[in-house]
């Protein structure tokens, strides 16, 4: 019900930002997030940024699970 993809903020123009999805750039509205900076990863759904993605957290979760799985399988 909600396809949303991560994009990297390249440029900020007031309520809007140019976001790069990996060689595809499109403007998105970022006014639903606080202090978005260039270089942030944001989650874009139908042209609107609904979250600032926590990259460190993403890496931590993966590392945690890889270690758990190593012990048990």
């Amino acid at each position: 019900m909600c396809l949303a993809v991560p994009g990297k903020v390249l440029e900020i123009k007031g309520e809007r930002a140019v976001v790069d999805f990996g060689g595809v750039r499109r403007e998105a509205i970022i006014s639903m997030l606080d202090d978005v900076k260039v270089g942030d990863y944001v989650l874009i759904h139908v042209g609107f940024a609904i979250q600032k993605l926590d990259i460190e957290e993403a890496k931590e979760t993966l590392k945690l699970w890889v270690s758990i799985l190593k012990e048990t399988t």
Partner: peptide
Amino acid sequence: FKEPVIAAAEMLG
């Protein structure tokens, strides 16, 4: 695949 092709496919579903 070129990366932007995957990016466009995923963005547009």
